[in-house]
Every structure is written in C-alpha cells, then in structure tokens.
Simulated scan of single mutants.
Amino acid sequence: MKFKIKLFLFICVLIIGSIIYCDAVVTNQAQNKVYETTETIPYNKVGLLLGTGKYLKNGAINPYYANRITAAAALYHANKISTLVISGDNSTPTYNEPQSMMDDLLALGIPAQHMYLDYAGFRTLDSVYRLQAIFGQQQFTVISQKFHNERALFIADYLGLNGIGYNAADVSAKQGLKTNLREKLARVKVFIDKFVDKEPKFQGEKINIS
C-alpha cells in the first residue's frame, strides 16, 4: 500500500512539474518577441491571424474573437503588415472560422485581395506549419492573445521560422479561467508534438502570396 501511495505521489509531482516546466519554457522563449502596441512592433509582410469561434454557447460574441479582429485591423491600418493569412477551423459546412473573420475584417476596411484563407488551421501547430508549407512564408507576425502567441512562437522556433507576436487584448480572469487552464495542458502537448515531429492534419496545394 505504501508503495502505491508513493508511486501515486511521484506521478502527481511529475505531472505538475512537467506542466510548470513547459509553461515556463514557452513563456521565456517568447520574451522580446511579443508586442502590445502598433508603435513598437516591427513591420512584417504577412500577419497570421489565428482563428476561434465567433459566438459563445450562450449566443454572445466571443471576446477572444472580437479582440483578435480588432488587433488584426489595427495592425493592418498601422501599416505593420500588408497581408493577412487567416487560419482556422472549417471542419463542417456550417462552421467556418476563417470566412467569418474575413467578413468582419472586410467591414473594417481591409481589402479582400490582401487576405488569404487557410481552412485547415485546426490547431495552432497546423496554422504555423502550413504558413510555411502552403503559403511559403518564413517570417510573419502572429495575431492572437499573448498566451496563444507565445505558444505559436515556440512552434515557429522549432520549425525554424522567424516569428513575432502582436497581442490582442485578453479577457477577464473569470472569463478566461477555462481557457487558461487548457493552455497549460496545450503547452505540454506542444512538447510532445515536437518530440514526435507532428505534422498538420492536411497539407494541400501551395498558395502564392503576391
């Protein structure tokens, strides 16, 4: 019985330690690569806007979504990017994150010819990987909340890409509690993906960004 208790405690410590370690490494590696204002962020030709659903289960607008749209438009109108690749989930005919984001960005004055849609961005790994493999981009500005940008930039680093992040406004601690808890586990998963050399679910034909 004592052995089982010790084994259980050892596993718990190992899991907690892994979560803390992965979280710290991802955060530290992104230092000096994420920016809060359009005045300080360098120019990149391409911005990678990471998708999320527009609506919450209660029908309200998802604040993560709304803040990413605002951030992408601000970055474009400040002339800190020239083109957007909008990458998100389009796994069913009735759920299309990239198209929804594009529609809202059109309403904010970004021309359609300056936006490209990546319908196979099911995970952050897929979005970053496909930016190079499909869209041919080695350097970019990722646009999402800070915690998400940090993880995307960690992925970019181990793929040999040169990325920086523009942080969209976050949500309140209460609103973002579940997302922040999931993020801790996602940061462990990104180490596993790196170890097994995980590739995206879909590849596809190359798209030239003119």
Rank of each mutant, 00 (worst) to 15 (best):
S18C: 14
K2P: 03
K54G: 04
Y55I: 08
L125Q: 02
G165V: 14
Y129S: 11
R68Q: 08
V128Q: 02
A112I: 12
K2D: 08
G121A: 14
G17S: 04
G59W: 15
P63G: 02
D197T: 10
S127E: 04
A71C: 12
V128T: 01
T37E: 11
Q137P: 03
V190G: 03
V142Y: 01
N32W: 09
F195M: 09
N208H: 14
Y35I: 10
N62S: 15
K184V: 10
T37Q: 08
V26F: 09
Q137A: 09
I20W: 10
T94V: 09
N67R: 06
T52P: 05
A73C: 08
G163I: 06
K194E: 13
S91M: 07
I61F: 01
N96Y: 00
M115G: 01
R130N: 10
Y65K: 05
P63S: 05
R68S: 04
G136Q: 07
H148F: 13
K174Q: 11
D103W: 06
V26E: 11
F202L: 14
F135M: 05
R130H: 14
A24M: 12
L153Q: 06
A112C: 06
Q138H: 05
M101C: 01
T83Q: 13
H148L: 15
D104V: 04
E39A: 05
F10K: 06
Y129C: 05
G53V: 13
L117P: 04
N44H: 02
L185M: 13
Y43H: 10
Y116R: 08
T179F: 15
V142P: 00
A173M: 08
N208M: 14
V188F: 01
A156S: 13
F202R: 12
A72D: 07
Q99A: 10
